[in-house]
Amino acid sequence: MMLDGLYQEIILDHYKHPHGRGLRDPFNGEAHHVNPTCGDEITVRVAASSDTFSDISYDGLGCSISQASASVLHELLQGRTAAEAAGIQDAFVALMQGRGQVEPDEDVLGDGIAFAGVAKFPARVKCALLPWMAFKDAAARAGVDVTAASSEVKA
């Protein structure tokens, strides 16, 4: 069934057993994002000190794709430096905007490669990106620019 491409076991596993879920203190940047077409919501908090994300916490309401994506984000970016996070963020965004044509690098994206199939469902790409966009804003509010390293933005 073609759904296998979308609902990978890894995604369902993150959805059912999310990593790092729940909003935590302390934090120095927070962003709340909604997807106005479907009503999905997420709040992301970051604790950034000396250029490292010592904690990334989140809470939200949404579909399996958006919630699993938040769990993967936590797993991939927690403890990373701004430059590392920017690279991973770029790679994930490029994968999601690649219409299924981008070959993901597991060394960079870890469990995030499971989202390769989501890129083939245009209506769901926004779901997968929701936590990542909220993270970018939360980081900016903490004074960390995770887009700084991205010299090449994919159309």
Binding site: L3, L6, G62, S64
Partner: peptide
């Protein structure tokens, strides 16, 4: 326990077109 988006996606894979969201 299942978000409407996911319900709608699985149904679409079976040719069943419903609306999900607000």
């Amino acid at each position: 326990g299942v978000h409407p988006h996911d319900v709608g996606q699985v149904l679409d894979a079976l040719g069943v077109e419903v609306r999900v969201g607000h």
